[in-house]
Design a protein around this nucleic acid. Structure first.
Lengths: 193, 193
DNA sequence: ATATTAGTAGAACGATCATTACAAAAACGA
DNA sequence: TCGTTTTTGTAATGATCGTTCTACTAATAT
C-alpha cells in the first residue's frame, strides 16, 4: 500500500474544533484552519472532503470528548445523590474562570445553534439531540437527588433547569454575569424543592 | 442648496434593521441591504458612509422604536404595581407567536452580542448600556411590585430576572422551549417572593 | 435660466472566500 | 529497488464580499 497518514486525525480535529468554537462556522476561514491544524488546504480537503466535513468531525469530537464525559455521572443507572449539584457547581466554577477557553467560548453546539449554519437541517437535528441528551441527564440526576419529591414537580424542575443550563451556555459569550445568575437560579430552585 | 433627499431615512433604516436583525451584521450582505431598502449602493454609502454606519443607525432606531417603548411603563417614576408582570407576560406571549418577526429573531442587540461584530469596543459598550437600562427598568418595576419585600432580596431578584430576560432573548433563535422556560422561571420567582 | 449641490445608477476594484487541479515528494508493500 | 498510493505544496478558479469611482440626473438658490 501507499504512504500512511502522517498527522494525528484526533489532534487535527481538536485544533480545528478550537477555531470553530471560538469564531463560529462561517467566520472560521480555511487559512485559519490551516494555521491551527498545521495542515495545508489539500490535506484538509483530502482528509475531510470540505470545510463542512471538518466541522462535522469537530462537532462529533466535541460531543465525545467534552460533552459526554461531563454528563457521565448523571447518566449512570443510579447516579450519586448529589451528582446534579456537582454538575452545576462544576459549570459555575468553570464560568468563573474567565481565562478558561471553555468558559469564555461557551458551548460549541449552542453557539452554532444561533448562527447561520443552524439553518442546515442536519445541524438543527444535532443540536436538538444534544438538548434532549442534556435534559435526560439532568432529569436523571434530579430524580435521584429529589427522590421524595412528587414526580410531576421534578419533571417541571427538569425542564426549568435544562433551560437555565442552556441559557448559561448561550450567555457566556454575551454576558458572563447573566450566565452565572442562570446557574445560581437553578441551584436555588433545586435547594427550595 | 442642491437637491433634497427623496427617500425616507427612517423607513430605510427600518428596512435595513430587519435584515441585520434576521441575519446578523456579517451575514447581512450589501446586495441584501439594497434589496430591502430599495436603495443602490451609492445612495447607501452616500447617506450612511458604510455598512457599519447603516448598522449603527439600525441599532439606534432599534433602541428608540422597539426597546424603549416596551420599557416605558417600567421606567416611570412610580410604575404601576403590576407593570413588571405585564412586561414579562408580554414577552411570553410574544415568544409564543412563532410567526412574529420579533419573537422569531430575538433581540437585535443580544444577537449581535454573540456575533463577531461584538469584538468592536463601541458595540460592546452599546450592549452593556442596553443591559444596564434593562436591569434598571426591571429593578424599578420589581421594587414597586414587591414594596414590602426587603431591599436586598429585591436587588438579588432584579439581577436574576434580568439574567432570565436576557437568556430568553438569547435563546429565541436557539431553542424556543428554553426561552419560554426562562420567562416562566422569572414569573415563578416573583410569585414566590 | 443658470449655477450649485446632492442623489442616483452601474461598473469596476481589490480582497477574501471555499474549493479544485496538478505536479512533486514521501512512505509503504513487494 | 520499484511501483503504488497518498500526502503535500502551490497555483488557479469562480464567487462574493465591502467599498470606491465616474458619469448622469434631478432639485434647489440665486
Amino acid at each position: 500500500m501507499g504512504r500512511t497518514q502522517t498527522f494525528d486525525t484526533g489532534e487535527v480535529v481538536r485544533a480545528a474544533r478550537g477555531v470553530f468554537w471560538k469564531h463560529g462556522y462561517e467566520a472560521a476561514s480555511v487559512p485559519a484552519l490551516e494555521a491551527a491544524t498545521g495542515l495545508r488546504r489539500s490535506s484538509i480537503y483530502n482528509a475531510f472532503g470540505s470545510k463542512r466535513g471538518l466541522f462535522d468531525a469537530a462537532v462529533a469530537s466535541y460531543l465525545d470528548e467534552i460533552v459526554r464525559p461531563r454528563l457521565e455521572p448523571l447518566k449512570a443507572e443510579l447516579p450519586a445523590p448529589n451528582a446534579i449539584l456537582d454538575y452545576l457547581h462544576g459549570l459555575r466554577t468553570g464560568l468563573e474562570q474567565a481565562g478558561s477557553f471553555t468558559s469564555a467560548n461557551g458551548c460549541l453546539l449552542i453557539n452554532t445553534a444561533g448562527a447561520p449554519i443552524a439553518d442546515d437541517a442536519t445541524v438543527r437535528d444535532t443540536v436538538a439531540a444534544y438538548r434532549a441528551e442534556l435534559r435526560e441527564a439532568i432529569g436523571n440526576g434530579l430524580r435521584r437527588h429529589l427522590a421524595d419529591v412528587p414526580a410531576d414537580q421534578v419533571e417541571r424542575l427538569t425542564e426549568t433547569c435544562t433551560a437555565l443550563v442552556v441559557a448559561a451556555y448561550a450567555l457566556t459569550r454575551v454576558d458572563n454575569a447573566s450566565a452565572l445568575s442562570s446557574i445560581d437560579t437553578a441551584l436555588d430552585l433545586i435547594d427550595r424543592a
